[in-house]
């Protein structure tokens, strides 16, 4: 054990100037590594939410799609129903992975595992914890999305050359939903509150231009649907998967970026309020 010195020794490893360090989250990756170690021994928990969008793809896209007419896109071209639904399921898979991680798992660690208390006793900061957990939630969403994209490629459901960029879009979706999910989780007091999560996620999944175009709705309902973050994620992913990229997609990106940023700030603040009392 070294003797105390009079001059403050710098925090063990000097923080390199990475984007995360500038954000005040230079150690966030260590939490992600911890989550990786845990997921490695509990893989079924990790992949548990993957299959839902896959099931929808086959039941709705392939099954129902056999009866459904082709769907006209904004520029007048038409795609088959399964081609229309698949990108939405890809976006949903990113949302599913991130939300599951950011709600159930984070709630458990926060309330029962006392995991963050242990971390905050080290040089880790609430920002490290928030960024690490949101990053990991995103990673879980990304793992689902990557798997889903492989299925889409195998089924020939992409067109054009922009589809690899859809992975970036799903990463953004994962960040946005992971951040807001974590922020929401910090306000939850019991497992019952998770019914609320379902109450938000299910309608969002059904009415975000996922299963049919928004144009089937009356005007006011279209406005409401545009408030859904999944709508913006779906538009983004669909454009990239079908090779139809427009400038307006920057707006969709902006919505998700703002959502991620607000979620992160709220989650960080709430961690301080709850744990550093």
């Amino acid at each position: 054990m070294s003797a105390p010195t009079t001059t403050p020794r710098s925090v063990a490893s000097p923080l390199r100037t990475t984007p995360l360090a500038l954000l005040g989250a230079g150690r966030a990756h260590t939490l992600m590594y911890r989550n990786f170690l845990s997921a490695r021994t509990h893989p079924m928990v990790f992949f548990g939410g993957f299959f839902e969008p896959v099931l929808y793809l086959f039941s709705l896209g392939v099954g129902l799609g056999a009866l459904a007419p082709d769907i006209a896109l904004g520029d007048g071209t038409t795609v088959s129903y399964v081609q229309f639904v698949a990108p939405a399921m890809l976006a949903s898979s990113a949302m599913n992975g991130a939300v599951t991680e950011a709600t159930f798992n984070i709630f458990f660690k926060l309330k029962f595992g006392k995991l963050y208390d242990a971390m905050l006793a080290t040089p880790m900061t609430p920002m490290d914890v928030a960024v690490g957990e949101i990053g990991w939630s995103q990673a879980r969403g990304a793992a689902y999305s990557a798997g889903f994209l492989v299925i889409m490629l195998a089924m020939g459901l992409t067109s054009g050359w922009t589809w690899p960029l859809a992975l970036l879009a799903t990463a953004l979706i994962g960040l946005a939903f992971g951040a807001v999910g974590m922020a929401a989780t910090t306000f939850m007091t019991s497992w019952k509150d998770f019914d609320l999560v379902q109450l938000v996620i299910l309608p969002m999944f059904l009415f975000s231009g996922t299963l049919y175009p928004l144009s089937v709705y009356p005007g006011w309902l279209q406005v409401v649907a545009r408030l859904s973050p999944l709508y913006h994620g779906t538009v983004l992913v669909r454009g990239l998967v079908l090779g139809q990229v427009t400038w307006s997609m920057l707006g969709n990106v902006a919505v998700l970026v703002v959502m991620a940023a607000v979620g992160l700030v709220v989650a960080r603040r709430r961690l301080s309020t709850l744990l550093l009392t």
Binding site: A12, L37, K114, M119, P123
Partner: peptide, 27 residues
């Protein structure tokens, strides 16, 4: 710090607990 109530990482092994704690410390 040894808190009043143990807050070990129950999802990890003994060795992994020590490893990740070292990483949190930036070692």
């Amino acid at each position: 710090v040894v808190p009043q109530e143990d807050n070990l990482d129950l999802e990890l092994t003994v060795r992994e607990n020590l490893l990740v704690y070292g990483l949190y410390h930036g070692l």
